[in-house]
């Protein structure tokens, strides 16, 4: 084991290398490392934030959907009610119309009956008189008997 000037040479070389490393190698590499660390941290944070935003948005969408469902159910309900109402109204109207038609027809029938009765009455009077004339075979004072026949006819 002999120590010689190599030890000095190595020490000097070592000092120079350390200085070089300190000056030109270490700072850019560690700076890049730190920079990347920061970037990654930022990225993770951004991802977190995005996740949170997404959750919020999803919640809001779910809320909106629920609301829309409720509202649509209400609308359908209302529409059904309205439709029923309209149907009911139409039914009522139809019934009324039918009744009116029936009533009209009845009145007409009544009128016809009346008219027929009148005609019949008139004819019965004439028949009765003719019958009476034939029975009596003589002319009776038409005026005197008219009264009697009319009375008979009205009793008919």
């Amino acid at each position: 084991m002999n120590l010689n000037a190599t030890i000095l040479g190595q020490s000097i070389a070592f000092a120079v290398f350390v200085w070089f490393c300190l000056k030109y190698v270490w700072p850019p590499i560690t700076a890049a490392l730190a920079d990347r660390q920061k970037k990654i941290a930022d990225g993770l944070e951004a991802a977190d934030r995005a996740q949170r935003d997404l959750n919020l948005a999803q919640n809001r969408v779910a809320e909106d959907l629920r609301e829309a469902k409720v509202k649509s159910a209400e609308i359908i309900d209302l529409a059904t009610k309205r439709a029923n109402q309209i149907v009911d109204e139409a039914k009522d109207k139809a019934r009324e119309e039918g009744q009116r038609i029936i009533a009209g027809a009845k009145a007409e029938i009544d009128m016809e009956i009346q008219r027929a009765r009148e005609a019949l009455r008139a004819q019965v009077a004439a028949i009765a008189i003719a019958g009476a004339e034939k029975i009596l075979e003589k002319s009776i004072d038409q005026a005197a008997n008219e009264e009697l026949v009319k009375k008979l006819a009205s009793e008919l």
Partner: peptide, 21 residues
């Protein structure tokens, strides 16, 4: 010693020139 020193330091220097984050 110097050869190896220059080798690794040169490599490191080369990397540190174009280091990217």
């Amino acid at each position: 010693s110097l050869l190896l020193g220059f080798m690794f330091m040169g490599l490191f220097y080369f990397v540190s020139r174009k280091v990217t984050s």
